[in-house]
């Protein structure tokens, strides 16, 4: 069941929502936001996309089963924690630096970002996986 209105609207909304998800994830270092919230935004976007274009097109666009994302996300978050341990710091210690960019700009960078990305992937994988499973049962 796809509607033309939703399809057209999702073309506009999906890129914006993805941007917002990325913004939320990056902002989360010292402010409300972070991997979990970003992941939820991301998941909602994917679900909206699926409602807009229908399951067949969606499956072609996203060939991965969400379950894989859970695994990859956990692994990424875990490895982020493990690296400082190998360097003699406590587990999950974050490395913080200011990256100098051309034109005098600088970016505050923390290696905890990778952990957040891992969380994001887990959240996307879990929530999209659950919704897919539910909607499969509804559609069948």
């Amino acid at each position: 069941m796809t509607s033309l209105i939703l399809q057209t609207a999702s073309k506009l909304i999906v890129p914006l929502a993805l941007l917002f998800a990325a913004y939320m994830t990056l902002k989360g270092h010292n402010a409300p936001g972070g991997g979990f919230i970003g992941g939820l935004c991301f998941a909602v976007t994917l679900i909206l996309l699926r409602m807009g274009v229908g399951p067949e097109v969606f499956n072609r666009m996203v060939p991965l089963h969400p379950r894989v994302l859970v695994f990859v996300g956990l692994a990424v978050a875990f490895l982020t924690g493990l690296v400082p341990l190998l360097m003699g710091y406590p587990f999950l210690t974050s490395y913080v630096t200011d990256l100098q960019l051309p034109l005098g700009a600088s970016v505050h960078f923390a290696s905890a970002l990778f952990f957040d990305v891992g969380v994001l992937l887990v959240v996307v994988g879990t929530s999209v996986g659950m919704i897919l499973r539910l909607s499969q049962e509804v559609e069948a």
Partner: peptide, 15 residues
Amino acid sequence: HQIILFMAIPLAAGL
């Protein structure tokens, strides 16, 4: 810091 391995090992093995 190595005591975290009690959590890291099963998590890695599980993954």
